[in-house]
Design a binder for these strands. Structure first.
Lengths: 228, 228
DNA sequence: TTTAGATTCAAACGTACATTTCAAACAGGT
DNA sequence: ACCTGTTTGAAATGTACGTTTGAATCTAAA
């Protein structure tokens, strides 16, 4: 059944699974074409190169996710009074879960792939991402800034990246974590449950009080800078 | 100057830099021996294999760090009243920064390597780590449990893993993040600064209020809580 | 000085990789 | 049925990898 997919589709499906599991550089085109049951040369025929295949795998999700996120951000930015940090983070939930319509386990797949894009050395991916979706993320930064006016821009920058790490790492090891959680706590853990657990964690983290200079001076003379 | 190191030492130094920067699988022995200015075969002669070299690079730091952490944990566990979550997390700072005595930029190197160990696919490393240092980490779990008695065990489990993700991901992409931060905010970002930024973030996150069942049901109207 | 063990060296081994080539198979419009 | 452009196929190209080999060189005790 389901063998009447196009070669391109079969390649994309096989590639995303292997990429998510093993990383981009550690997954060979031979593994991909073998799993997809297509000829080795077809990757270069249909996608040009391995690099472009990686980008195509991500684009399948980004083209669905980012416009959805963008419209949510625009909606929040139009609000009269600033939104709370947990309101801002909440808008991620539905768009992310809708990636499950793109593909089975699409949400988990996408988030794992996103993590690989950051931890593997893929300069072309960073450029690709910022070039296509930088504007959307700028809106997010603005929203968080409004939600947490006490945060200096540089502190906000770091906390957003800390949060990205939380999400990405959790999704990367989701399978193992879910297994342990179910064995130890008898809890049925799906991707939605994990995302909902993340919300209060991240909300509290991003809005955490900023230590004063005095507190810093103990072990570290870090200049708390203001950005521009 | 400083050319009178043993071949093993030169290999370890070169390997840790390249491993931290590029990952374990994406760094070749030829790159390592070329940077170390030693013969290609000497890695296999002195360490046996690439796997064992990876473990040796990590052991140089773990043998210093873990006993220090262990004694800190034992000290905290002996306290009369339970320690706060930020007290518990604070004990990581000094032992981590003392890794700079093991080697220049030792702290950053070690944390990046730790991140690589989790994100790269290195089954042997996971086993190696749990086998040697599982008992130390059990003490940490106990301390956090005492600091946050309101947290159900399953929630604590997830939040500790969220936090591990924060640290590991941040260190894995530390170079890129530091570059951006310096370019955008004119901040000199060293590893100590990042660690000190992580403390309040993680403290607030781990101790975040646990949402009630009712709050879960909608899309997530999570109350923005105050830390501790 | 001799000698035995530890270390270094250049070269090769076998394997795996991304990519290219070009002929074969296929498709749909005429 | 014929042709044209698209897709697939098997094989080969050149490069890089981890590891092994065996001779050359060093080191230090006898």
């Amino acid at each position: 059944m389901a063998s009447k997919q196009s070669t391109q589709h079969k390649i994309l499906d096989a590639a995303q699974s292997l990429f998510a599991e093993t990383g981009f550089n550690d997954t060979s085109l031979r593994q991909i074409t073998s799993l997809a049951e297509v000829n080795l040369a077809s990757v270069n025929y249909h996608f040009g190169s391995k690099k472009e295949l990686i980008q195509a795998v991500l684009q399948r999700y980004l083209l669905v996710l980012m416009p959805r996120l963008d419209q949510e951000f625009i909606r929040l930015l139009a609000a009269q009074q600033p939104n709370s940090i947990s309101q801002v983070l909440s808008v991620f939930v539905k768009p992310l879960l809708e990636l499950n319509k793109v593909h089975q386990n699409g949400t988990r797949m996408f988030l794992q792939l996103l993590g690989r894009g950051y931890t593997d050395v893929q300069g072309h991916l960073r450029w690709f991402f910022n070039h296509h979706y930088g504007a959307v993320l700028d809106k997010l930064v603005l929203l968080v800034q409004q939600a947490c006016p006490a945060l200096p821009p540089s502190e906000l920058f770091w906390r957003l990246h800390f949060s990205l790490g939380t999400v990405v790492f959790t999704m990367a090891s989701n399978e193992a974590l879910a297994e342990i959680a179910e064995a130890d706590f008898n809890e049925n853990v799906d991707i939605e449950g994990v995302i909902l657990r993340l919300l209060p964690y991240l909300s509290a983290a991003i809005a955490a009080p900023v230590p004063t200079i005095a507190q810093f001076s103990q072990t570290a003379p870090v200049a708390a800078g203001e950005g521009r």
